[in-house]
Design a protein around this nucleic acid. Structure first.
Length: 785
RNA sequence: GGGCGCUUAGCUCAGCGGUAGAGCGCUGCCCUUACAAGGCAGAUGUCGUAGGUUCGACCCCUACAGCGCCCACCA
């Protein structure tokens, strides 16, 4: 796609800012950060309830857990007491083995007398108390909740409030452990569930079972259902860091683009909890903490340092590694040499912009901001540009299992249906998806994908880069922008054909006579440059692309090149020189203007065009970016050309309406004093053989159109009836516009309250329509006679 | 339950208080030596629904409907 990286920095040895996560210099920064945070009291080790992945045998953070709604069941179980019993509801009956209480709401009259009494925990022989806690919603179910502090986050809180010791009933595999009755030990949790339900049923304690939708937390890595478990882990205390992170954005030091992502960022940081950073994996940065036999903790930068601190006591290093995001959050400065004060750090921190997706605002963006502020006192970057998520043509999220992903390389190089089918169904986790995927691919890419080229793909995504959250990918737009790239290519071919080996006006000594059209395209170029600059400044790549597209195609190709053909054919020497100079200079500038979005083609073309425009340089990449020069704006030329274009359009319009074959040249009468630019443009672009300026249009049935102060009449034989019909339609249209505008002006509140300029504009509008109507009506009258 | 966003031409998307736009698709005429992946001309929209504010609303406000995403502890 033409990503322009500084490849010198690809050196992963770390001297130049490139990095691989496990490089020595990166590891050193990670250790340094860990030690400092520990010394500052911002890293601590504690036994807490965490999200446990029983497949990978590691803790994962909240962000690594995905909760999806799934079909589950809700069971009601009776816990008998003496002279009473309570019914609790649960989606996870196996956890009852770890229950330590039954909770009711303190204001719930039904159970007030039971609080403090005991119930028997079925199947275990244990008895547990009935407690009162506000957490319980008396409206839900029976209003009684079983409390399992070791395997439920809410219950953990409740248990803590009531001084109840959690009972952990699972091994790291999530099989039942020895804290449970022998009958269940060693059973995997879902097997245990089955057995327990059967036993409860046998004991008559199972009241009901019904289908129930619930959100199941799954580990993002393994897909395993996460088990809340009490384990010893390392945590980062987030409160102060988060406060600082909020401040960085609130103060404007870091800016989200589009701005609405700020709300997402703020919401997370305001509700942040401490971050468990240790992972029970064997690949990653090892935690720089050591334990002596008594379990005392020593945190140090190295084994030697630890040994010194521990005064030679035998030490064992913590086998855990750090969450991958722990090192990633340091990248903005660790990759630049931190903790040393390097020139790179000085130069590139903060960087100007981070371009990323909204899915890692929490994982990465927020943490980079907090870490950079904490350790360098700086923000890591000033702007965070969040791009849209690209979805498939049906608006579905792209995913391998759906087979609706698009490989950018297939758009660039093209591919066949067979290749696409093979690619999207290879290595499928679920074979049954194959048929569906094949159907999808066949319906959307019956002929595979044509090759669009890297530039067209890049231009397409720029054009689609609006401030929306998602965008549906459409192959057709790719096609349109590929056509634009071709247009640019072909226009350049034309210019080269006419300019190479010829005098392109680079010698300032020789006379150059700029026509109105030359001055107009130069002026229009200034406007395009300003538009593009403004668009880039606000990250509106779609607007930048559109401005370039319109200038190149709609103005330069459609009008200027066409006019230039005539100027080259008919002009005097100074005029031809001016035309070539303008053709070449404007094109050269347009190529530079388009280069960031169309890198390859513009480079290729620029190599040939630049010398003709007197530009020297090895590559377009190192040329200055075009900047609008207001002194080259030419309002007079713009006005004149605007009228000339209208003239041409009106003439073409009449030709088309009258079904004049394109190759027929016609005679055209015009009133008023059309400018030379108008006459020449009309002659060449509307294929007029004879352009006659007259006081009054000839008495004829030929069609008439009104262009500003002019009336024009191509000399065409027409069927008067058809022409009457055409003119009547025009009269009706004008009358409609006039009555709409008059109604506005007849409204006294409008005239009194609307800005004077708007009212004035409306008056001119009416006057314009009326003048046109008068002329058109006159012709219609004539035809009726 | 909270938050964010979206709803404009057949499709993908701009626009935004003062005459509805682009690309693709569609219709007609053209192989006019830069380009048929092109040229010229053209058709197509009660701008999600209902209220409100305003001289004026696609645009601002409110409610509703539909769609999407994020966050959240309801057993």
């Amino acid at each position: 796609l033409g990503v322009s990286a500084n490849w010198e920095y690809a050196d992963t040895e770390g001297r130049k800012g490139g990095y691989f996560t496990m490089d020595a210099h990166m590891s050193r920064a990670v250790t340094e950060v860990f030690v400092r945070l520990y010394e500052q009291g911002l890293i601590y080790r504690a036994k807490r309830l965490v999200n446990w992945d029983p497949v990978l045998h590691t803790v994962v953070s909240d962000l690594e857990v995905d909760s999806e709604e799934e079909d589950g069941r809700l069971w009601e179980i009776v816990y008998p007491g003496e002279g009473f019993s309570v019914t609790v509801a649960t989606t996870r009956p196996e956890t009852m083995l770890g229950d330590v209480a039954v909770a009711v709401n303190p204001r719930d009259e039904r159970y007030r007398t039971l609080v403090g009494r005991k119930v028997e925990l079925p199947l275990t022989g244990r008895s547990i108390p009935v407690i009162a806690d506000d957490y319980v919603d008396p409206e839900f179910g029976s209003g009684c909740v079983k409390i399992t502090p070791a395997h439920d986050f809410n219950d953990y809180q409740v248990g803590a409030r009531h001084g109840l010791e959690p009972v952990n009933i699972f091994t790291p595999d999530a099989s039942v452990n020895d804290n449970a009755p022998p009958a269940y030990r060693g059973l995997e949790r879902f097997a245990a569930r089955k057995t327990i339900l059967a036993d409860l049923k046998a004991a008559g304690l199972l009241v009901s079972e019904k289908a129930y939708k619930l959100r199941v937390p799954r580990s993002g890595r393994s897909g395993a259902v996460v088990e809340p478990m009490l384990t010893d882990q390392w945590f980062v205390k987030m409160e102060s860091l988060a406060r600082d992170g909020l401040e960085a954005v609130a103060s404007g030091a870091v800016r989200f683009v589009p701005e609405h992502w700020t709300a997402t960022y703020n919401h997370w940081l305001k509700n942040i909890i401490d971050w468990p950073i240790s992972r029970q994996l064997w690949w990653g940065h090892q935690i720089p903490a050591w334990y002596d036999d008594a379990g005392n903790i020593t945190v140090a930068r190295s084994e030697d340092e630890a040994s010194q601190k521990a005064k030679g006591k035998p030490l064992r290093r913590d086998p855990d590694v750090l969450d991958t995001w722990f090192s990633s959050q340091l990248v903005p400065f660790s990759s630049l040499g931190w903790p040393e004060k390097t020139p790179d750090l000085e130069t590139f921190l903060p960087s100007s912009v981070l371009v990323t997706g909204n899915d890692i605002i929490f994982f990465w963006v927020a943490r980079m901001i907090m870490a950079a502020r904490h350790f360098t006192g700086q923000v890591p970057f000033r702007d965070v540009y969040i791009n849209a998520i690209v979805r498939d043509a049906e608006g579905e999220k792209m995913s391998k299992s759906k087979g609706n992903t698009i490989d950018p390389l297939d758009l660039i190089d093209g591919t066949t249906l067979d290749a696409l089918l093979a690619k999207s169904t290879v290595g499928l986790m679920k074979a049954e998806h194959k048929e569906r995927i094949e159907r999808y691919v066949k319906s959307h890419y019956p002929n595979g994908i044509p090759a669009f080229g890297a530039d067209a793909v890049r231009f397409t995504f720029a054009s689609l880069a609006t401030f929306t959250i998602t965008l549906n990918f459409d192959l057709n737009r790719c096609e349109g922008y590929r056509n634009f790239c071709n247009k640019l290519w072909n226009a350049t071919r034309f210019v080269l054909m006419n300019a190479e080996g010829k005098d392109c006006g680079q010698d300032e000594q020789r006379p150059v006579e700029l026509s109105v059209w030359d001055r107009w395209i130069i002026s229009t170029l200034q406007r395009a440059e300003a538009e593009v600059e403004a668009a880039f400044a606000e990250y509106r790549f779609d607007n930048a692309a559109a401005a370039i597209y319109r200038f190149v195609w709609d103005e330069y190709c459609d009008w200027y090149v066409e006019i230039a053909k005539q100027q080259l054919a008919d002009g005097n020497e100074a005029g031809q020189r001016a035309t070539r100079r303008t053709l070449v200079r404007v094109l050269e500038t347009a190529l530079r203007l388009a280069h960031p979005i169309i890198p390859f083609i513009t480079e290729e073309l620029w190599q040939s065009v630049a010398p003709l425009a007197g530009k020297k340089g090895e590559t377009i990449m190192l040329q200055p970016y075009p900047k609008s020069q207001p002194e080259k704006l030419d309002a007079a030329a713009e006005r004149e050309v605007a009228l000339a274009k209208e003239f041409v359009n009106a003439t073409r319009n009449l030709r088309s309406d009258m079904k004049v074959p394109p190759k027929d040249r016609i005679a055209l009468y015009a009133t008023g004093q059309p400018s030379a630019a108008t006459v020449s443009a009309t002659v060449s672009l509307a294929r007029v053989a004879e352009f006659k300026v007259v006081e009054e249009l000839p008495q004829s049935d030929s069609p008439v159109a009104v262009v500003g102060p002019h009336r024009i009449m191509p000399y065409i034989e027409v069927d008067p009836a058809k022409e009457r019909e055409r003119l009547s339609k025009e009269v009706a249209r004008l009358n409609g516009e006039i009555s709409k505008a008059r109604a506005q002006l007849g409204n006294t509140s409008f005239v009194q309250r609307a800005p004077a300029a708007v009212v004035q504009q409306m008056r001119e509008r009416v006057a314009g329509f009326e003048a046109t109507l008068a002329k058109v009506s006159a012709q219609l009258e004539r035809l009726r006679r």
